[in-house]
């Protein structure tokens, strides 16, 4: 596992306490897990994602991510309806490790209330949380 200083956290994303990142583009929010989360999990071997059209309330479990010997739940940082899932992860789950912010994105949602984005952390606040 890496030191926090060795990890990458883009400035233009919002972070949740459960280590998911969110990015707002027009009316759609893309969600994935951050560099810290993928590093903690180790080699990701499987990602279980919801179906387009499923709706979730903020904080609900929307899927799981598996490494060889662990399963972790994924919690949605804001409420909304799933508008897209990253189907590439089915065959290449390693994208979560290799490109957590680009090719490793997990779902896109249409948020129920965009203002929920304001409740998420900016990079600095998130880093402070990690450093405890």
């Amino acid at each position: 596992m890496k030191e926090i200083s060795e990890l990458n956290f883009p400035d233009d994303l919002k972070y949740a306490g459960n280590h998911e990142w969110s990015k707002l583009d027009n009316d759609e929010v893309t969600i994935g897990i951050c560099d810290y989360a993928q590093d903690q999990l180790g080699d990701v071997v499987f990602v279980e994602l919801p179906q387009v059209g499923d709706t979730f309330d903020k904080g609900q479990e929307f899927g799981t991510v598996e490494s060889v010997k662990a399963v972790s739940e994924l919690f949605i940082p804001l409420s909304g309806e799933v508008t897209g899932v990253n189907e590439n992860l089915e065959d290449t789950p390693e994208l979560v490790n290799n490109e957590p912010y680009t090719g490793g994105w997990m779902i896109k949602i249409k948020p129920a209330d965009v203002s929920e984005m304001d409740g998420l952390m900016m990079k600095d606040a998130y880093l402070d949380m990690l450093k405890g």
Partner: peptide, 12 residues
Amino acid sequence: LSTREQHIRREK
């Protein structure tokens, strides 16, 4: 694929 099994996923 042992993440399906009891020693990892326990009650699930």
